[in-house]
Design a protein around this nucleic acid. Structure first.
Lengths: 340, 340
DNA sequence: TCGCTCGTTTAAACCGGTTCAAACGCGAGA
DNA sequence: TCTCGCGTTTGAACCGGTTTAAACGAGCGA
């Protein structure tokens, strides 16, 4: 009696068949207006909500999308992208009452996680983030037939929707900003080479320097981590030809780099200019505040979700290009020091 | 033909009934060893995975847990707790092949989100985080009959499992640390008063001061935000009786506070000592590095998940107490300045 | 009045599992 | 030889929806 009402209860109360109730629920044409009214009233009176599992079973759709967050356990929480990205996803799927299945996994288990996602049929599609060079996932998903949208990939991925934000303009903008301030010797602290987006940012930096007619500065790995940024910075500032500016692949590296430089007695931006990437919440509150690049992760999430839904429902694979990131100029960049 | 195999296919191949296959799948006793073997072989040969939705429909269990992340849209991403917490959840549920449904919502829509979670029967239980004073959610969930575990609540919540970490020892430890350094005038920049955990940290600070025989220092709201921390700090350092140490409710406020203090010409820790809370990844890379309190969010996630599963499966409501947070002493705290 | 549409409604099969009462086969005891 | 008991297996109902082909009934033209 405290049992949830089923479609049969509604049908009986409304004096129609279950099929009719189902038709009304899915507003299918061909049901008389008066009947619709009766069914709706009955459903309302009983407080009936159709059972997800039953619908999933007969329609074959889970009405949920999946996000796999692959990180080494100790790096979880260092990435400012995901919370906002997830908020963007949610804002779109909640319109249709769909859900988000989240899986946090380590790189070792990543492929298994995707396989299980498919086997379990718990999601109708997945987001593919942090694409890597030679990434096996697009192939795997196409093979398994699971709709997917690649986030931050240009449209090179065959048969998979993509949502991309071109980092090049903003990286170029950062370099121009530095060049305009008189910098001629600009270094780069890169993210892990396996990531496509890390590669693209590095390439953009290279191109921007070339375009400005400047020599390629040194490139050191920073691994997107604080420790990596610190080590790279240490190496850079103790070189014979110390750069006057460093562009970092993310804010975490940049902030750690600033700490190391300050420790070494360098003043910023007087002795050294620093540019980050991400615009983490703390970026405006470091000393000096950090000049960095801000991408709108929530709108990535929204766009990616719309593209994914389109793939799921119509089998099309749209390629969406987002508004470029913005350069947030703060106090960590300033005029290049006079040449000694 | 490219159709997924069903239990019927396995049954046919193994030469048994569907019921038998089901028994083997759920390792129910009463199936001859040889038969089990045949069924397993058949399932393996066909690559059969039972359909989640079908199981969900007949067992009434969704095999997933829900996490609702309630934040103002612009504060998403400032909280270091959740990613690690989610990783902890995942590490437990993935053992049993369960899933995590994530919902990011704003405070306005929070109750609706919980209701929908229940109506949809998409989860077997939920985590209740960020409990507030007079929180309506425990009552709602008990009423709706959805198993839940309250995270960071003492066992006052009737009929709901709790997982708690007592902040008091570490806050007391921080105060003792400051007192030992000679500080007598210690201020507090608090989190939003509606949160239970913010209240408890504040209370712990009060008690620790009282225990040390010191007067209550000023308490200002920081709202867990950088801006709030900055404003509060500004107010504190321009007071007549400027405190020599400030304890902040979280690292975000503390870091912004340090920036403001430095801006005002104060040196840390010489003129002012600062203590944060959370130990965000950047805490060791601010200048000076931040003395703060570290709780192990991943182990919260694990403990909370185990408690939730216990509630779901046995109807019991365990109350788990976690290891207290640890004080990470860094460079932002030092001897109190000599009284002018 | 008969036959035909056309709009509306429905019975029944189906999705792919779980579960329970009943049937089955076989060896032991009477 | 017959019965009983036990371990094993199964048929059939069930979970709560969706879907399709067919039935229904009212209106209309011939």
């Amino acid at each position: 009696m405290a049992r949830r009402p089923t479609i049969a209860d509604v049908a009986q109360l409304a004096g129609v068949s279950r099929a009719t109730v189902s038709f009304v629920l899915n507003d299918r044409p061909g049901v008389a207006a008066a009947t619709q009214e009766r069914v709706r009233a009955a459903a309302g009176q009983l407080g009936w909500t159709p059972s997800r599992s039953a619908r999933a079973l007969s329609t074959g759709r889970a009405r949920a999308v999946g996000l796999v967050l692959t990180r080494e356990p100790d790096l979880i929480g260092t990435d400012p992208f995901f919370p906002a990205f997830m908020a963007g996803i949610e804002s779109v799927i909640s319109e249709s009452g769909d859900g988000l299945m989240l899986h946090v996994t380590s790189p070792r288990n990543e492929m298994d996680t995707y396989r299980r996602l498919v086997d379990d049929q718990r999601v109708d599609g997945v987001f593919l983030t942090d694409l890597r060079v030679g990434d096996p996932r697009p192939e795997l998903l196409r093979e398994l037939g699971l709709p997917a949208v690649a986030v931050g990939a240009d449209d090179g991925v065959e048969g998979i929707a993509t949502v991309n934000l071109d980092d090049r303009p903003v990286v170029a903008g950062a370099v121009h900003h530095l060049v305009g301030l008189g910098h001629r010797h600009i270094a780069y602290v890169a993210g892990p080479a396996e990531y496509l987006h890390a590669q693209r940012r590095l390439g953009a930096w290279r191109d921007a320097l070339a375009e400005a007619g400047l020599p390629q500065g040194p490139v050191l790995p920073g691994g997107f981590t604080a420790e990596g940024g610190a080590l790279a910075t240490q190496a850079l500032i103790t070189r014979g030809d110390r750069p006057t500016a460093i562009v970092y692949a993310n804010d975490l590296s940049a902030t750690a780099g600033m700490a190391v430089a300050q420790e070494a007695g360098l003043r910023m931006p007087d002795d050294l200019s620093v540019v980050g990437f991400d615009d983490v919440p703390l970026a405006s509150w470091t000393r000096p505040s950090l000049t960095t690049c801000r991408a709108d992760a929530a709108s990535w999430g929204r766009a990616a979700t719309r593209a994914l839904i389109e793939t799921i429902e119509h089998g099309t694979t749209p390629h969406v290009e987002l508004d470029p990131a913005a350069l947030m100029v703060r106090d960590s960049t300033g005029p290049a020091p006079a040449r000694p």
